[in-house]
Every structure is written in structure tokens, then in C-alpha cells.
Design a protein around this nucleic acid. Sequence first.
DNA 1: CTTAAATTTGAATAGTGGTTCAATATTCAT
DNA 2: ATGAATATTGAACCACTATTCAAATTTAAG
Lengths: 195, 195
Amino acid sequence: MRVREGNKEKAIIEAAVKVIAENGYYGAKIHKIAELAGVATGSIYSYYENKLQIIFAIFDNVWKELYGKLELVEQDASISPSQKLEALIDLVFNLFTENQDLALVFAHEQNVLIRDYPDRFTPYFEKFIQTGQDIISQGIASGVFNPSVNVFILRKYLMGGISGCIQAWALDPAGYSLAEIRDQLKLLAHKGVNL
Amino acid sequence: MRVREGNKEKAIIEAAVKVIAENGYYGAKIHKIAELAGVATGSIYSYYENKLQIIFAIFDNVWKELYGKLELVEQDASISPSQKLEALIDLVFNLFTENQDLALVFAHEQNVLIRDYPDRFTPYFEKFIQTGQDIISQGIASGVFNPSVNVFILRKYLMGGISGCIQAWALDPAGYSLAEIRDQLKLLAHKGVNL
DNA sequence: CTTAAATTTGAATAGTGGTTCAATATTCAT
DNA sequence: ATGAATATTGAACCACTATTCAAATTTAAG
């Protein structure tokens, strides 16, 4: 019997990230993804049920990886809450620095996907966010963070802010250094704009 | 000769906001917008060139209004930079509190539209953002805000954070009070999470 | 009342692109 | 070498929907 040549599943995902980053989900045509992945149009459907499952798979990969890493940080008692918060920011930044197209897909498509398919979106995202919330709660309990901060609102604010910065960077990577954005984010998250 | 009955232009915009909020731009079908606006499908096209112009008109209205109001605040020398920053947050919140559907359209569609049609998006948004940036610069100049804050990054961060919170609220308005979100945002923008 | 100009209608059109599937190709076990 | 099982192909299909336009309607002026 015939055996699958190479890792087409991965090739399709990678091509999809590129094409979706460039054209958005609706602008990303299956035949274009297939072309870039080096497979026939029909082959896509022997690896993924339909177009939607492709982008679900993309986000599943992303948040599975990020959640796994954050989990390790969160459980490490030798790291302070402040450092854990910074580590969270670092994790997201490191991933998206490595893959600019992925950053664009994240910034542009995730919210819409969650709106349209709240129950089918990867559960790892919610887990990641929940772990972030736990980190903030620890910081409040240990007297480092301001107890009047609402952790639920903070998590939306922080994720929104990160997303806004990553998007701006991905659209114009030469505009300003990613290292600076990262430092600024840490500053703003910790101390806000005040002196 | 025949005369136009009622304000169909406005009815179409309002219907479009509702339908797009519920289904997203691509999920919003013209015939559905027409139905809700109480006009025939074809009538849409005697008021707007095509579907895209409808959503452009929505954002043009939004940012024209917000920019006009922020401009007044910015030019008022009797208001401190801190108060101006809070006024900016208030302006955005007031508008979206009044119109939850608009909040959803803003949170879900704006970024994608800017990506796809950067040159055709309403110029009032950029003006609004620029004015916000000016307010921060004033705060730094007058020694209230931290001079190591990069205003360009801050504006992306703040808008992203606002967007993230508004979206969360619009998706589940009963979840938590808008007044609390607003206060939290001011706290986080000013002082961050630290005590 | 009649006519002309403009608006409104909604069925028909046309283009698009996700998905299917019959044909072909490849691999492995015997 | 042969055949069975599986993978791959890509042209054709078909559902969907933005847009068009000829006909119907409405209003105002003469």
C-alpha cells in the first residue's frame, strides 16, 4: 500500500498561516494554500475536514505550546509573581517574534473566531488566560500587586494591549524594535504611565 | 418628481451595525441588512456604492464624532493631562455603552478593515489616536507621566486594552459592570498592577 | 389629470471559491 | 512482478450572495 510522503499536515498548516496572514481568513483561498504547501487542492481535505479546521488547528498548536510553558513557570515557587508576569509577556513575544505571520493571524483572526465558534476554539487558550489570572492573584495575595485590581478585567486589558502591540509590529516590523515593545509592555503593565 | 421617503441612509447604517455585530462583516448578508432597514435589497445600492462603503461609513461616523470631542478636551488648557487621558477613556466608553452593537463591530472588524484597506479607512481614527498621543506627550512634558514611556507603543497598548475590555463586555454585558471596567482601565493606565 | 423625473423594487445574473469524487499514482506485502 | 490498499490529483460541481437592471411606484409640477 501507498504511504504518505513527507509531512503534508504540517506543510498545509504552515502555508495556511502565511496565506491567512496576508489575506485574512476569508481572503485565504484553499487553492492558494494548497499551492504554497505543494499539494493538490483536494489533498487538503484528506488532512483537514474543511477550511475551518485548518485555522482551529493553527490556534490549537499555538496555545497548547504557550500554555505548557506558562504552566511550568506558574508552578515554580522560586519565581516571584512579578517575574511570572514578565515571563508571560516573554512567552507570547518569543513565539510571535519567531513567526511574524503567526502574529498577524493571532492579532486579526482570533477574536472573530472566538465570537463565531466559542465552543470549538482551543481550550488551551482559556487555560493560558486562567493561569495568567492565577499569577496576578498570587501577586495580590503576596502584597506585590494592587489588591484593587480586578483580575478578570486585567486579563482582558493585558491581552488586548499585547495583541495591539504585536499587530502594530507585525504590520511594520521595521517601525520599532520588538525588544523595546517588550520592555515597554512590562513597564506599562507594572507601573502604568505615571511617574 | 418622486422624493425620498424618510432617512433610509441612516436606517441602512443602523441595520448594518446590528447585522454585522451579530454575524461579522462576511456573515452579514445584504438582503438581511435590507430587510432590517425596511428597504428592498436593491435600494441599498442607491445609497451606498457597495457593501464595503457601508462599513466604512459606520467607522467614519464613529471616529468623526470621537475625534471632534477629544479635540475639544485636548485644547482645553484648564484640564490636566491626567484628566485628559481619563476623558479619552470616557469618550470611547460613553459611545460604546450607548450602543453595544457598535462596540462589537468596533472590537471585531476595525483591525481587519485597517489591514485590508489602510488607505481607505476613515482618517478621523488616525487623528483621534494622534491627539491621544499628544495628550501623553503633554503629560510627559509637564512632569506627570513617566518620560521613559514610548508614546507610540503606549497608544497601541492602550487602544488594544480598551478594545479587549469592550469586546469582553459586549459579548457578555451582564458579566461585569461597565462602570467598573472604566475605573479599572483608568487605574491600570495610570498606575499598572503594582501597589 | 397627465406627464416627467426620481425612487424603489426584487427577481435574475454572474462570479466566486469551498468541496467533492472519479481517475491516477504510489507504495508495500506476498 | 502483481495486486491490494492507500494517497494524491485537479477539474467539475454547486451553493451562495453581492450586484444589476428593467419594471413598477410614487411624487410634484404643469
